[in-house]
């Protein structure tokens, strides 16, 4: 009973401290937990790998802000690298003002890293990749993109007129884009599915935070999206795929966190089991 009371009255701050330790220790002493590629990640990878011709266009929706960046940023990076390996053009689009900053960060980082690692296949802003300017209006913007993408945005986020950019060659509507991956932690995914996929038949994949992953599985099953990256784990799987198949050697933001993720999960499972045992013992004793 003493133990039960101790567990019941434990100061939450001890738990916070333990969580911090459980997360930090695997970073310093990595174990390298094995990881299996799940089918939704594999199918997105396969689509980009096999079904988009060279010089085809990958549209990536950067609809997140710093609060969910930890999960979605590694996805955006991995997708961009994958597109570079296959010589696809990448267009970033955002429905959030803060998304602009996120997109520019990805472009800066991937271009620098890629160009220093692959001097024979240089990528250039405006020719291989760019971020479309933020335009407010969400659903109105998505609908207008179905009619005319250059007229919807006029310029990219760096202030260049879209008609002068080689990356925009031949792009007028969704029809000229090969695939879209929407990265978001909010319901803006639904709008993309409704308008871009529903009305304009854009082929789509979703990358989302783990919070929303369970919800978005139903769109996978209905065929509205053909791939799903769920949370940091999804990003880590994608990193593993580009490493294995293309020899990606850069920093793997998601993969290095997987040990910490696993250890934290084990810790939480223990807490839940302990909490339930204590709950039932207490209930039993009180019932007596």
């Amino acid at each position: 009973m003493k133990f039960v009371n101790f567990i019941n009255n434990i100061d939450k701050r001890w738990i916070y401290l333990l969580v911090a330790l459980v997360v930090i220790i695997p970073f310093v002493f990595p174990v390298g937990c094995p990881m299996r590629i799940t089918p939704p990640v594999q199918s997105m990878y396969n689509y980009i790998e096999d079904s988009i011709p060279e010089n085809g266009v990958l549209l990536v929706g950067i609809d997140y802000d710093p609060s969910t960046m930890a999960e979605l940023h590694p996805m955006a990076k991995a997708l961009t690298y994958h597109a570079f390996y296959n010589n696809l053009r990448v267009l970033f689009v955002t429905m959030y003002p803060q998304g602009s900053g996120m997109g520019q960060d990805i472009i800066d980082k991937t271009l620098t890293q890629w160009n220093s690692a692959n001097p024979e296949n240089q990528k250039e802003l405006g020719r291989d990749i760019t971020l479309l300017a933020y335009v407010p209006g969400v659903s109105a913007v998505m609908l207008k993109m179905g009619e005319n993408i250059p007229a919807t945005f006029n310029e990219d986020a760096y202030g260049n007129k879209l008609e002068n950019l080689p990356v925009m060659d031949g792009i007028k509507t969704y029809n000229n884009l090969n695939y879209m991956v929407e990265l978001a932690g909010s319901s803006v995914v639904l709008s993309w599915l409704m308008y871009a996929n529903g009305r304009y038949k854009m082929k789509m994949g979703i990358g989302t935070t783990a919070v929303s992953a369970a919800e978005y599985y139903s769109y996978l099953q209905s065929g509205q999206s053909n791939g799903l990256l769920g949370g940091l784990k999804g990003a880590a799987e994608y990193e593993k795929l580009i490493t294995e198949n293309h020899g990606y050697a850069g920093r793997k933001d998601a993969s290095v966190g997987m040990d910490a993720q696993s250890s934290a999960h084990i810790f939480f499972i223990l807490l839940i089991v302990l909490g339930n045992i204590v709950f039932f013992i207490k209930k039993y004793k009180e019932g007596k």
Binding site: F27, S67, T68, A70, E71, H73, A210, Q261, A264
Partner: peptide, 12 residues
């Protein structure tokens, strides 16, 4: 899982 991922992002 998501909350832990956010924390991992910061720790990283």
């Amino acid at each position: 899982m998501a909350r832990i991922s956010l924390f991992i992002g910061r720790i990283q």
